[in-house]
């Protein structure tokens, strides 16, 4: 049970331990050195392991991409062949195509990536604020070179909104899914973003823009091919959900939980204000947390247990305050 010598060693010897459960919490001087040496080696080995693992990951990702490309090529050949045949026997070919799972996959993958050439055209409407490509500079908005894989609000020298910086600190990073959600409705992801843009409602346009932008990012593997972690690519809200009329009394009770952290006078030090928030933006934002598109763990947890009716009730209560 007791190690009396140990207590003294650590008190007098001064090399207190803060280490490994295997040793319990008591240190002895001679052990300290051993522990220090072992810790050092362990951490070196862990570093090497991490480095190796990273390489292995890259290799796997590379291989996966290679495979996909090969498959896409094969399918494209098949399709071309099918199209040729279709010219001769249209009906049969059409049925075949629909029932061919590989062909289906490629169609959706193509949607995921979009067409960079078309994307360049759609991007024209962004160009008044954003530059991309060689020599691109920050304008009203940051330049978009290397946007894939970057933390939100993290590009040095650009003056981001507080909300964008906060989202970045919370862990929001730009990948295909998050960029797609942001392009669809910027405020759903970052409430008070300075990006004054209503959003691109057409999923195809967004996919095209992302395919275009991706050419200017060094690490296109950051784009998940068909995100296996299944992050919802955008805040999916049925129109009925937005139309629920909230119960303000219930909303008032539920809101008391928000007020523990969000200040009622609307100040936003450390934690954003939630007063004077347009109802629909509020609802969309809460669902974005619930669907874990917005990153903050406390808000994800709070939103995850709110039903559609409860979110509507909160929105109705906050709306009538104004």
């Amino acid at each position: 049970m007791t190690n009396t010598f140990g207590i003294f060693a650590s008190v007098l010897g001064g090399s207190g331990l803060v280490l490994g459960l295997a040793y319990g919490w008591m240190s002895r001087d001679y052990r300290d050195q051993e522990i220090a040496a072992l810790t050092e080696r362990l951490s070196q080995m862990e570093d090497s392991r991490a480095a190796l693992a990273a390489k292995a990951d890259q290799a796997v990702a590379f291989e996966a991409r290679l495979e996909d490309l090969e498959q896409a090529l094969a399918t494209a050949r098949d399709e071309a062949e099918a199209a040729r045949q279709a010219a001769a026997a249209p009906e049969v070919a059409a049925t075949e195509r629909v029932s061919d799972p590989v062909a289906e996959d490629v169609t959706s993958a193509r949607l995921d990536f979009g067409d960079p050439a078309k994307g360049a055209e759609v991007f024209a409407q962004c160009q008044s604020c954003h530059q991309v490509g060689q020599g691109a500079e920050d304008r009203i908005g940051p330049h978009l070179n290397g946007i894939f894989g970057r933390r939100a609000g993290a590009h040095d020298g650009f003056n981001y909104s507080d909300d964008m910086q906060m989202m970045g600190a919370d862990g929001l990073a730009w990948n295909r899914d998050t960029l797609d959600a942001y392009l669809e409705n910027p405020k759903a992801l970052v409430s008070r973003t300075r990006m004054n843009f209503a959003g691109l409602k057409d999923a195809g346009d967004r996919a095209d823009i992302l395919a275009y932008l991706r050419q200017f990012s060094a690490s296109p593997q950051d784009i998940p091919e068909a995100a296996p972690t299944a992050q919802a690519p955008e805040v999916e809200l049925a129109p009925e959900v937005l139309e629920i009329v909230g119960d303000t009394d219930y909303g008032e009770y539920l809101s008391s939980e928000c007020k523990t952290c969000h200040q009622q006078d609307g100040s936003d030090q450390g934690i954003p204000a939630i007063t004077h928030w347009p109802t629909e933006d509020f609802v969309v934002a809460m669902h974005a947390y619930k669907q874990e598109i917005r990153p903050h763990p406390v808000m994800q947890m709070m939103a995850s247990r709110l039903s559609d009716e409860e979110i509507a009730a909160l929105a109705a209560y906050f709306a009538q305050l104004e």
Partner: peptide, 21 residues
């Protein structure tokens, strides 16, 4: 470090929130 700092700043906001609550 950025996340840890944001977490600390969040606690300051929480303190103001709960004491006014």
């Amino acid at each position: 470090a950025a996340l840890r700092q944001a977490t600390y700043e969040e606690s300051i906001g929480w303190y103001e929130g709960i004491t006014s609550d």
